[in-house]
């Protein structure tokens, strides 16, 4: 396992050192080392095993879904009508659910990215240490609120408020859910971006100030670009969180899958559909039951793609400071 280890045992030992290291204790120590190592190895293997098991179940049930008579891969990826429950009129076109997911996540990012980045820059570059000491923990409190509370918040506060602006808003709509998800991911973006900004070496700020840059110049033209890879990964992580968010959209976005860009409409997200299936009384082996796994697999692929793109960007654009 560890060929780089120095071959301590084979090294010739002087008699004087030999008396210092009694053979039995050395033996015991080696066994202890080995025990700890195998414990750590099996812990790591266990998490790999769990991941593989989940993937296997996901893959098996998804292929079960596509094996059903009513279903075809072409329909699933090629159409946008999602109607798994309507007797003879069943349709399984994933894109309306994907569209609903991205509509909500898009609104959430539009809310959270500007607000989160400005807050992060303020906290990292402008705020007095005492202000930061108060603000940052309060943002983290925001992250600790159960998402069901955000869901109710969207349903009972945001939606009624939106309705006063426009008659067009449904009782369930994408905008209210999106705003609530945006508030949910705000602490992620703020906190991770602030970490990225603060990781920028002070020497870069000194360099900019020393050239006559104002604090604004320094923050936006030096520190922010230097932290961009970290900020991008923060945003992508938050996006993955928004795509996977379940409770808020199940409560506030509705359950009508459709392809629309109108945020006033009732929609359904992939996660929203899965909740509906898991809670509703569908038979455990019907096509609609298996469709849940196909949607889950799609969701998995999408979030995985976000994560991979995020880490690629982080590697590709990371600046190395010594």
């Amino acid at each position: 396992m560890t060929p780089s280890n120095p071959p301590a045992d084979s090294a010739p030992e002087s008699p004087a050192r030999g008396t210092l290291r009694g053979a039995p204790s050395r033996h015991a120590r080696r066994w202890k080392e080995r025990g700890i190592l195998s414990l750590l190895n099996s812990a790591a293997l266990f998490s790999v095993f769990i991941t593989l098991a989940i993937l296997w179940v996901l893959g098996a049930e998804t292929s079960n879904f596509f094996a059903q008579d009513e279903v075809s891969v072409g329909e699933f990826f090629g159409t946008a009508q999602w109607n798994p429950l309507l007797g003879a009129e069943k349709h399984f076109g994933i894109w309306s659910l994907v569209c609903g997911t991205f509509l909500v996540a898009g609104v959430a990012l539009l809310v959270a990215v500007p607000l989160g980045l400005v807050t992060a820059i303020y906290l990292s570059e402008y705020a007095h240490p005492r202000v930061r000491a108060i603000l940052k923990p309060s943002l983290e409190v925001l992250a600790g609120i159960p998402t069901v509370v955000y869901g109710f918040f969207a349903l009972t506060l945001i939606t009624p408020a939106l309705k006063t602006f426009s008659e067009g808003f449904g009782s369930f709509n994408a905008l209210a859910a999106g705003i609530a998800v945006g508030i949910l991911i705000l602490p992620i973006i703020t906190s991770l971006s602030e970490d990225a900004l603060r990781a920028v070496p002070q020497s870069l700020r000194d360099g900019a100030f020393g050239l006559g840059a104002t604090r604004f110049d320094t923050s936006f033209k030096v520190v922010f670009p230097a932290a961009l890879s970290g900020i991008t990964s923060a945003v992508l992580l938050a996006a993955a969180r928004a795509i996977g968010e379940t409770m808020i959209v199940a409560l506030a976005a509705g359950s009508t899958p459709k392809v629309t860009m109108d945020v006033r409409d009732e929609i359904q997200t992939m996660t929203g559909f899965m909740v509906q299936m898991a809670l509703g009384d569908v038979s455990n082996y019907g096509v609609e039951y298996y469709s849940m796994y196909a949607v889950a697999a799609m969701l998995f692929v999408l979030t995985l793609a976000f994560t991979l793109v995020g880490s690629w960007i982080r590697k590709r654009y990371r600046e190395v400071y010594d």
Binding site: P201, S203, L204, D206, G207, A208, F209, G210, L211, G212, A213, K221, V222, P225, A226, E319, Y321
Partner: peptide
Amino acid sequence: LRRRVGMVFQRPNPFPISIYENIAYG
């Protein structure tokens, strides 16, 4: 003042941009 009195620091601290842009920055 800082434009008229330039400063170079103990550790080299170029901005993580091109050589050209570093000089163009000021």
